[in-house]
């Protein structure tokens, strides 16, 4: 029998459990993703999507199981700037007195010295990232004055500036304009070609069909996982959404 080479997997989560003060938020969850794969994380509110992200970034401790990022611990993934997290719009204080440039520069903090003084390479990385999300005209705009889509692009730029090989995106398409949606989908294709691994949570089933190679359906634990065409069946989705029929979610044609 051939032994599994864990180095092959960018993300390898094995039977992970997370509980908050005894309340189980996620149990026995597994996920394996390789370079260049885009995976959709689908589930109801409270199904453990954000918890899953938190476990992968090390923001919460797992009570059971094992997570390997590029074959190493979450701790060393943090040190190596391997994972970038793009928060959902509600996850941040949009009135915080900070501008686009400073937010994107935060993507470089992990690789700077203790005073977080930007080097020339950091400045260049931030500049490039802002250009890629088409916000060059808004470099010194406070984030409170941006539209929802522009703010989303700002945080994408932060992830780009970080040069992470794994991107975790919490609801990347919620509350964005058409232009941002188009830009994000173009970026996804570029990221895929660059060999980045993407895990994104979404409520929008159409986006899953459009972008995701793989789908992870969760409801406190993994309901189904695999290639989108195989896993995205009406039965699985009904289970994931606690008995609600997919007709309700997609319309009767699907």
């Amino acid at each position: 029998m051939e032994s599994i080479n864990y180095q092959n997997f960018r993300i390898d989560a094995e039977n992970i459990c997370v509980d908050y003060n005894g309340k189980v938020a996620l149990y026995d969850a597994n996920l394996r993703l390789k370079s260049g794969q885009i995976c959709g994380l689908v589930g109801m509110n409270g199904a453990g999507k954000t918890t899953f992200f938190n476990a992968l970034t090390g923001f919460v401790n797992i009570s059971k199981g094992k997570i390997r990022i590029n074959g190493e611990s979450v701790r060393s993934a943090q040190k190596d700037q391997t994972i970038a997290y793009v928060p959902q719009s509600e996850g941040i204080d949009s009135q915080f007195p900070i501008n686009v440039w400073d937010v994107v520069m935060m993507g470089r903090y992990g690789s700077m010295n203790i005073f977080r003084c930007p080097r020339e390479s950091d400045v260049q990385a931030v500049k490039d990232a802002i250009e890629r999300v088409d916000l060059t005209d808004h470099i010194s705009t406070p984030i409170g004055n941006l539209s929802g889509g522009q703010r989303k692009r700002t945080f994408l730029a932060r992830a780009i500036a970080q040069r992470a090989s794994i991107l975790l995106l919490d609801e990347p398409f919620s509350g964005v304009d058409i232009r941002t949606e188009k830009l994000i989908s173009e970026l996804f294709i570029q990221f895929k070609n660059e060999g980045k691994t993407i895990l994104l949570s979404t409520h929008d089933m159409i986006h899953v069909r459009e972008f995701c190679d793989l789908v992870l359906l969760i409801n406190k634990t993994v309901v189904a996982y695999g290639e989108t065409s195989e896993v995205f069946t009406p039965e699985n989705i009904t289970t994931t959404f606690g008995g609600i029929s997919p007709d309700f979610l997609f319309g009767p044609e699907s």
Binding site: N54, A84, Y85, D93, M106, G110
Partner: peptide, 14 residues
């Protein structure tokens, strides 16, 4: 950064 986005801080090893 800690006040603004502690999750990002944690993710980049701060």
């Amino acid at each position: 950064l800690y006040c603004f986005d502690p999750r990002h801080a944690k993710t980049v090893g701060i």
